[in-house]
C-alpha cells in the first residue's frame, strides 16, 4: 500500500514536471503544424535540440537570459525556413522526410567532434554551465515548499521556480495560439489543412501561410527545448527521433487541432507512463515475467502501441470533436 502511494506520488509529480511542460509546449507547436495546418513535421525534437543549444551556447558565451531566449527562437525560425523552403511547395511527405532527416543532422552535428568546443560533443553541455542566468531570475525565497504531496526546492534545477517558469511559458503559448487560431489567419491555416489548392484558388499565398505556421510551431519547439534542458543538461542523444515520436503521441492523445489537447495529452501521457514504469517495479507486480531492467522497454512498446491505437481508433484524440470524427468516417 505504501508502495502504491509512492508510485502515485511519483506520477502526480509528473503532472507538474518541467519535462511534462516541455512536451506540452513542443506538442502545442506541433499542433500548429499538424493540427491546424496539416504539416507533417516529424522533426520536432530537432527544433527542441536546436533551441536548447542556442540557449545554452548563447548563455555560456555571456548572453543575458532574455537574449539567449531570443537567440534560441531565432535558431528555431532559421531552421524552419531552411526546412520549409525546399519542401512546402511539394507534397506533405517530403516535409516529413526532410524534417526527420534534418533533426537527425542537428543531433549528429551536435554530438560530433566538429563542434566539440561549443556543443561538448556527445557528452553534451552540463546544466551548471548555462543555468545560472535563469536561476538568478527567480523571485522565490530560498528553501523548500510542499504543496500537497509534492515537495521541491524553491530555487535550483528541479525546483518550483523551474516549474513556474515552464508552465507560465506554456500558458503564454496557449494564449497566443488561441488568439491566432480563432482569427481569420487561423481560418486560412485550417483551410490549407483541408485543401491547399482550394485556398490557393481563392487568392491566398498558401506557401507563405505554411511557412508562417512552420516557423511559429518551430519557435514553440525551440522554447520547449529550453524548458526541457533547464532542470538537467543538454544531451543530444536524449533529444532524438524517439522524442519527436513522443511529442506526436502526446499531441494525438490529447487531440490535434484542439487548444488544450497538447497540455492534457502531455500530463496524461507522463502520469500514466510513470505509473506503468514505477508500477511494474513494485512488488505488487512481481507476478509479471518482466525483469526490472526491461521495464523501460515494455513501457516503450506500450507507447508505440498506444500511438497506433490512437491514430487508428480515435484520431481526433480525447478532446477532439465528435462531428469531425463523423466526417472522417464518411
Amino acid at each position: 500500500m505504501e508502495e502504491l502511494l509512492r508510485v502515485l506520488t511519483l506520477a502526480l509529480g509528473e503532472l507538474l514536471a518541467p519535462a511534462t511542460a516541455a512536451y506540452a509546449l513542443a506538442a502545442i507547436g506541433l499542433n500548429v503544424h499538424f493540427g491546424y495546418t496539416g504539416l507533417l513535421n516529424v522533426g520536432q525534437a530537432g527544433f527542441m535540440l536546436l533551441g536548447a543549444y542556442g540557449f545554452g551556447i548563447a548563455t555560456i558565451s555571456g548572453a543575458p537570459f532574455w537574449v539567449a531566449l531570443l537567440i534560441a527562437m531565432a535558431a528555431g525560425t532559421l531552421f524552419a525556413v531552411i526546412l520549409g523552403l525546399p519542401t512546402l511547395k511539394l507534397r506533405g511527405d517530403y516535409l516529413a522526410i526532410v524534417t526527420i532527416s534534418a533533426a537527425e543532422i542537428i543531433r549528429m552535428l551536435g554530438r560530433s567532434t566538429l563542434f566539440d568546443d561549443y556543443t561538448g560533443g556527445s557528452a553534451g553541455i552540463r546544466g551548471g554551465d548555462y543555468k545560472g542566468s535563469f536561476q538568478e531570475l527567480s523571485f522565490l525565497p530560498d528553501g523548500r515548499t510542499m504543496i500537497g504531496p509534492l515537495e521541491y526546492l524553491n530555487n535550483g534545477s528541479d525546483s518550483w521556480w523551474t516549474r513556474l517558469f515552464a508552465w507560465s511559458l506554456v500558458i503564454l503559448a496557449l494564449v497566443v495560439v488561441w488568439l491566432l487560431t480563432r482569427s481569420p489567419w487561423g481560418r486560412v491555416l485550417k483551410g490549407v489543412r483541408e485543401d491547399e489548392d482550394a485556398v490557393r484558388a481563392l487568392g491566398k499565398n498558401v506557401y507563405s501561410y505554411k511557412m508562417q505556421a512552420l516557423i511559429l510551431g518551430g519557435v514553440l519547439g525551440s522554447l520547449a527545448g529550453i524548458i526541457f534542458v533547464l532542470p538537467g543538461a543538454i544531451a543530444p542523444d536524449a533529444m532524438g527521433r524517439t522524442m519527436t515520436f513522443w511529442v506526436w503521441t502526446v499531441m494525438l492523445l490529447g487531440g490535434a487541432a484542439t487548444l488544450f489537447g497538447p497540455v492534457l495529452g502531455s500530463m496524461l501521457f507522463f502520469f500514466v507512463y510513470m505509473i506503468v514504469r514505477a508500477g511494474m517495479r513494485t512488488d505488487v507486480m512481481e507476478f509479471l515475467p518482466i525483469p526490472t531492467q526491461n521495464v523501460d522497454h515494455v513501457a516503450g512498446v506500450l507507447v508505440g502501441v498506444t500511438l497506433m491505437l490512437i491514430v487508428i481508433f480515435r484520431p481526433q484524440g480525447i478532446l477532439g470533436n465528435k462531428k469531425e470524427l463523423a466526417l472522417d468516417a464518411r
Binding site: E14, A17, P18, A19, T20, R107, F228, V229, P231, G232, A233, A235, D237, A238, M239, G240, R241, T242, M243, W246, F270, Y273, D296, G300
Partner: peptide, 9 residues
C-alpha cells in the same frame, strides 16, 4: 524526466 527517452539513439 530527462532520462526517459535517453535510451533512444
Amino acid at each position: 524526466e530527462t532520462s526517459a527517452p535517453a535510451e533512444d539513439d
